[in-house]
Design a binder for these strands. Sequence first.
RNA 1: GGGCGCAUAGCUCAGUUGGCUAGAGCGCUUCCCUUACAAGGAAGAUGUCGGGGGUUCGAGUCCCUCUGCGCCCA
Length: 843
Amino acid sequence: MNVPEKPSLDGIEVRWADTWDREEIHRFDRSRDRDGVFAIDTPPPTVSGSLHMGHVFSYTHTDAIARYQRMTGKSVFYPMGWDDNGLPTERRVQNYFGVRCDPSRPYIADFDPPFRGDPPKDHRAIPISRPNFLELCDELVELDEKVFEELFRRLGLSVDWTLLYATIDERSRRVSQRAFLRNLARGEAYSQEAPTLWDVDFQTAVAQAEMEDRDRPGAYHRLAFHRSDGSGDVEIATTRPELLAACVALVAHPDDERFATLFGTTVTTPLYGVEVPIVAHPLAQPDKGTGIAMICTFGDVTDVIWWRELQLPMRAIISRSGRIVTEAPAGVDAAAFESIAGLTVKQAQRAVVEQLIASGELLGEAEPIQHPVKFYERGERPLEIVTSRQWYIRNGGRDSDLRAALVARGEEVTWHPTHMRHRYENWVEGLNGDWLISRQRFFGVPFPVWYPVDADGEPDHDHPIIPDETDLPIDPSTDVPAGYTAEQRDTPGGFTGDPDVLDTWATSSLSPHIAGCWEDDPDLFSRVFPMDMRPQGHDIIRTWLFSSMVRSHHEHGSVPWANAALSGWILDPDRKKMSKSKGNVVTPMGLFEQYGTDAVRYWAASARPGVDTAFSEEQMKVGRKLATKLLNVSKFVLGISSGEGTATEIADPVDLAMIARLDAVVTEATSAFASFDYARTLERTESFFWWFTDDYVELVKGRAYGSRGEAPAASAKAALTVALDTLQRLFAPFLPFATEECWRWWHSSSVHTAEWPIPTGVGERPELLDPVLEVLARVRRAKTEAKVGQRAPVEHVAVTAPAGTLDLLEAGRGDLLDAGSISAIDTTTGDTLDVAVQLAPSE
RNA sequence: GGGCGCAUAGCUCAGUUGGCUAGAGCGCUUCCCUUACAAGGAAGAUGUCGGGGGUUCGAGUCCCUCUGCGCCCA
């Protein structure tokens, strides 16, 4: 045994993290069968900046559960992944190196970027080739990932770092492409030319899950359409007059009597003189504007529905750059159109409004309104809708059977907390289209397909050329399909590669497959899948959680995991969502250094599952106090008992009563942990711990020192040892460093590979301690009121209490005399408890 | 508009199927350097459990309703 003179938390993180690495205590034992494994589908953090308190918070919750499961004897499959694939990385590369990707540029060997970090504000990004851009992506993510790993190790995450993956690495690309090809073969993936939400800045299609509504100012402009029979005008209101040239119909609600006689007739558009029909559709809102609206191809998603369901013609005028196309669509007055050709949407609106004023077809003043506008969640300009060919995976958005099946899958998962299931169902039931998985970006997993090019040089999208699974991963922009030569690329009669990359969620939705080496290592996969637990934030239920469910449902006909544990948000102390500026000032590493890692973990683990939680340094101070106390009480107990004694040697009723309480805590702590409620385990353990140190230890200290002889001391020592041993293990998942520190004083192996405690079963009469401690409290109070120290001697204590209480009290009489420095206790039977304390005269 | 959550001490929060006098920590006040711990300990004060109604022998807890805050979706 080796107890230090002055226990300290300083430096324990590095010392024990190194030891754990050396002893490989977090290593997954892949020889265990599925029942002996606890598999965690760790969220791969986005490597596009820095880790913040939100990461520390939620990853601590998962780690506590992982450590608990390990102690119960499970082989814990706890991988880590880096989500380095996708737009956030591209964006960061652009900002870090001062470059942008231009696929038309040639590759430059040994390219040296103009900056490495913080290009000046006026710097214009240098266009570079796609391969050069990807090299810079690789360089930067490697840097970021080192920093991430260091922080996670310092946080004490018990991940098995040999299981590390990155969502852009070869294994992930192979898994992602293989899963896509399987979806394609089964008809779950398909490509289609269709109107698509488009971000004009990022130049990519955007999925429903990445969209958000933002309130933006707009204005209703009232426009006069002219009835074709010359009988007057029809007045409509629109917030997007610039789309007038794209108008293909007017629409009103079928039950709206104001327009009943107009349905089936036609009008001509202002400025452009296009004849368009007036149609009826239930999605038209009678109370909006004038009750009749123009349908354009396309102003918003409702236009798309109308266009599709009413089989209207296409008159698209917005290009992928967000500018008005240069040629007028068929039927549109070319001379009138020329004045807006090539303008941005904003410029076009101004021009059209001016023209309408001039022609007298704008009625009255524009009426300003606030209205929701669709944005890409990372974007800065409203989404436009353009027609393009995209890949989709069926997700129930267009198929009610599949939707119902996915809702049913949601019921197979146990949600923590349970109400999070509603978020999932809400999302699934509100889907309005399949999952768009293609992105017109660069740093991502490429679609593993080529297309034959016909004699006219046009790709045949209906007959994609598929690689063999054994060749994956492939890059269709450099690899050549079987049966073709490289010279045939992009030539008539040859082939062309699909230029797009998969949505980042299309890869991360396969995180269980990537981590579990699906198909590459079927033996491993069978031992970990379906996994036990998916921890994640509730904000990505609609993306990561749902897409994972879709992939697993298609591929395996099962859920990907049995439990979904949703963590809450970190809020500023003033209850607002943690601001960036604040998050940057308070860095996790700074807090680890200031309070110790265990203290920060304590703060995180105190928050109940799924509950938004205020950032609180006060809680960290409490955590530090707890860790310090644990070291000190360990030193005390081990100093007095030498770590000897077992539950069977406990004989004194006071000790048995304490053990009874301890057993109850173990039972409760265990069932809470088993149901993922780490916070409850911590709270129960902690409150017992403080009671143990403040009351029980003080009560039996004298006896343990031998004040009443060997046998009573032996019982106390055994009880102290058993309690300490149990408490160190109960705290181990929360305070991994402090518990390891004091555990190793008297054990040669790690507390984290020790067995999770089970009740001793020897406890008796827990209620006995209540009257004993009540009397002790009265004595303490008397001393405080007399303003003397707690060691001040007491001459005499007279206790009046009911007979039953006095019986209980009798068992603790000896300990009370010691703990209170009391010379004598007299007892009298009475109705209520009364304690009279007579202090010894001061010297 | 639909869904979900929250409201308990000055602050942050516990309070599991209804059950003794509603708890903890922080903060505040007083005292104590005591041989595990002064980065500590002992003691104390602090509540219309958001409002209203209902069920019940009994409601912080269950039901209804209202108010306020937050989140998700449309």
